[in-house]
Amino acid sequence: MLKDITLGQYYRTESPLHRLDPRVKIVATFAFIISLFLVKNFIGYLIAGLFLLICIRLSNVPVRFIFRGMKAIFFLLILTMVFNLFLTPGIVVFSFWKLQITKEGIKLALMMGIRLVFLITGSSLMTLTTTPNNLTDGLEKLLGPLKKIRVPVHEISMMMSIALRFIPILMEETDKIMKAQMARCADFESGSVINRAKNLIPLLVPLFISAFRRANDLAMAMEARCYRGGDGRTKMKPLIYQKRDFIAYLCILLYVVMVVVIGRLPV
């Protein structure tokens, strides 16, 4: 059941998108998300969709895999669309009881739906094609200028990469503990809500103990290697822009200009 969570996961394969500098991908994702909020008509979304489709093709990640993560937000998506559908004032198209559907409501609901789906797909495409380490490296480099105003950029990114690194470890640990307790006939799947919460104790206690132990071990290992923060620390694989990264920046710029110009035309 834990295997179904693909949000924020990395998909190991070889593709032009995987090879790009993480900074490019972070900037591109932000540009894409902002562009989604600037668009005012469906032609704009069509362009955004095409851009996304090209990116998905370039990433070599199976489409099925990307949309599996969508299940998690399905409920949110439906809720947003229903609220927009019924609660937007305007020209009434259809009404029953106290509810009425307006022309504006249909349009808004559709736009919201598309926006949400694109948003999730776009950002999960970034995490699917970038290793957590690369992602935090890129973020650290991008936020570098903030060091001047005393923001602890290195520490933040270090914390982030450790947290990300621990997600699969703890997931695996959870799986093992669950199996060990299921071998003793523990039941995690049935019963009332209160009983189910109670049944989680045999899972949570070993999990917390192991998390604390791992954190302790990691701190010790870092200290043993003289870790003392980011000042003067060099990288084994420093991020250097290649030709392809500049081409990618150019493509993104082109896309943003196109979407903003066409997408904001009044319909």
Partner: peptide, 8 residues
């Protein structure tokens, strides 16, 4: 019985 007693 699994390998690590800590898991149970």
């Amino acid at each position: 019985v699994f390998q690590y007693p800590e898991h149970q």
